[in-house]
């Protein structure tokens, strides 16, 4: 009799659907509406490299010590520098970072003594060409400019 009533009132079906509806709470939805909403990336995320400038003077923080290039397992960083005759100090001229071979291990930013090189939270670094992945100093200072879409 009980079984009959369960069948008539579709109790099993409702029980099953209750499980389905229970997980419909917006809290349980984890799909990112990607280009519309950019996901929140962890603070320590190791993404696109950036060569930091001094926030006030705008001069590069890099002292061209070459430690990042030595630390890199893939030897993909090339630092070129020039000796300034007036101040007798090395000055950065160009900085090449080959992202196509980078594995984002973070050893270069660990090695940097002045926090000039940093792996940032930018993750949109894809390129249509291989050359586009070899970043020069200008690109490293400005960072990637991913396409923004209008909706």
């Amino acid at each position: 009799m009980r079984r009959f009533l369960r069948t008539v009132f579709l109790i099993d079906l409702i029980e099953g659907l209750w499980v389905t509806f229970r997980t419909q709470h917006p809290r349980n939805i984890c799909t990112d509406q990607y280009p519309r909403e950019r996901p929140k990336i962890a603070e320590r995320f190791r993404g696109a490299p950036r060569l930091n400038n001094h926030p006030e003077t705008g001069e590069t923080l890099c002292i061209a010590c070459n430690l990042c290039a030595i630390a890199c397992p893939e030897a993909l960083i090339v630092v070129s520098s020039e000796r300034n005759e007036k101040t007798k100090r090395k000055e950065l001229t160009d900085f090449t970072y080959d992202l196509s071979r980078c594995m984002f291990c973070g050893l270069c930013e660990d090695a940097c003594p002045v926090d000039a090189l940093e792996l940032t939270q930018d993750f949109e670094i894809a390129s249509y060409t291989r050359d586009g992945l070899i970043w020069d100093r200008k690109m490293l200072e400005e960072g990637p400019r991913p396409a923004r879409y209008k909706f």
């Binding site: 603070e43 320590r44 995320f45 190791r46 594995m103 984002f104 291990c105 973070g106």
Partner: peptide, 14 residues
């Protein structure tokens, strides 16, 4: 997610 917050990578964590 815990890994990402801790060390900045999800799969090849280092």
């Amino acid at each position: 997610n815990i890994y990402e917050k801790y060390c900045g990578a999800r799969l090849t964590t280092h």
